[in-house]
Simulated assay, not measured.
Amino acid sequence: MRLEALHNELVACRRCARLVAWREQVGQEKRAAYRSWVYWARPVPGFGDPEAWLLIFGLAPGAHGSNRTGRPFTGDASGDFLYPALYRAGLANQPSSTHPGDGLVLRGVYITAAVRCAPPGNRPTAEELAACAEWTRRELGLLGRVRVYLALGRIAHQALLGYLGLPRAAYPFAHGRAYRLKEAFLLCSYHVSRQNTQTGRLTAAMFDQVLAQAKALAGL
């Protein structure tokens, strides 16, 4: 199965009743600044280079970002931090990500998340994470050239460990920590959320270093 076919299947998913209700409620109520938008309000498929060497793995779509635009980290503060960093690292053709069709192209990078629907309070339940793990298995299984898995935050890190069949206790999360796997590396970073970037927990310089580390691990 190709990624496009999998994504067509994914966007029709209604497995988690709480997430379906929330994503659609947000899409109807909207934020005042986006009244003119028709929200995506469906599961958000991954985005990027099918031949990617770097897999960036986030937590879940933002209610008024990806849940609005239909593309990971697009249209909110997290994307306003992430995509300029990818551009500085030579991994994107432009520093902005506002909507699908804006011309953004990723180079050697693919972005997806542990949960594909926007969760209330940005907090998916254990059951919702488990339900989406099947999408992770199928989507990441089609990305055969990944050499570095970059987990954004502890929950994404733990979800990746589950996909890779690795025990949590042996691979604790810590910003900037890298683990050698059989045929790839697992790299950790604080999430690029507004909460982390506005408080200085994660700075642009810190994330630039993480991307530089990813390139070095991949031998680039």
Rank of each mutant, 00 (worst) to 15 (best):
L160N: 04
R68N: 09
G62S: 14
A113S: 14
F47Y: 06
G200I: 13
S189M: 04
M206E: 14
P172C: 12
A204S: 14
V26A: 15
E128K: 08
P50I: 13
L220D: 08
V38K: 06
A60Y: 05
G58H: 03
P72W: 06
R194K: 02
I56N: 11
Y87Q: 08
S66Q: 09
T136S: 09
P72K: 00
S189R: 07
L142M: 05
R201N: 05
A118H: 06
E4W: 04
C132A: 08
F73M: 07
L220T: 07
V38I: 10
P167F: 09
G75N: 10
A32G: 12
G58R: 01
V210Q: 03
A32N: 14
V44A: 00
V20W: 10
V105C: 09
R68Q: 05
H191A: 15
Y87L: 01
R35P: 04
F81D: 03
R68K: 08
G79P: 01
R116Y: 15
Y171A: 06
R107H: 14
L187M: 03
Q198N: 09
W40M: 01
A41S: 11
T197H: 03
A118L: 04
Y190G: 05
E4V: 04
Y163A: 08
Y39C: 01
S189H: 07
C188V: 04
G108W: 12
H64D: 09
L186R: 04
C16I: 09
D76R: 05
L82W: 03
L150F: 02
Q209P: 00
L143W: 08
T197F: 00
G79R: 05
T136F: 00
W53D: 14
L217R: 00
P119S: 08
T69F: 04
P172W: 10
A113Y: 09
I56W: 02
D80G: 06
Q25P: 01
C16W: 02
V11P: 14
H175E: 01
L161R: 07
F81E: 02
Q28P: 02
V109W: 00
A113C: 10
H7Q: 09
L217F: 01
N67E: 07
T125Y: 06
R194T: 05
I56Q: 06
Y83G: 02
F185D: 05
R88K: 15
W22E: 15
F173A: 04
E4Q: 12
Q198H: 13
P45T: 02
A41L: 07
A5E: 00
A63D: 14
V148A: 09
A77H: 13
G70V: 08
G27P: 07
Y149N: 04
R145M: 02
A216M: 10
A214L: 08
W22S: 13
A5K: 13
R42A: 08
S193P: 06
T125E: 11
Y83R: 09
A114V: 03
F47E: 12
G200C: 11
A52F: 02
Y110F: 15
G27A: 03
G103F: 12
L187E: 03
E127Q: 14
H175R: 15
A77S: 13
V146E: 13
V192F: 00
R147W: 05
E127S: 12
L140E: 07
P72A: 04
S189Y: 10
G90P: 06
K182R: 12
A216P: 09
R147Q: 12
L150K: 05
Y110H: 13
L143A: 10
G48R: 10
G62V: 00
G101M: 13
T136M: 00
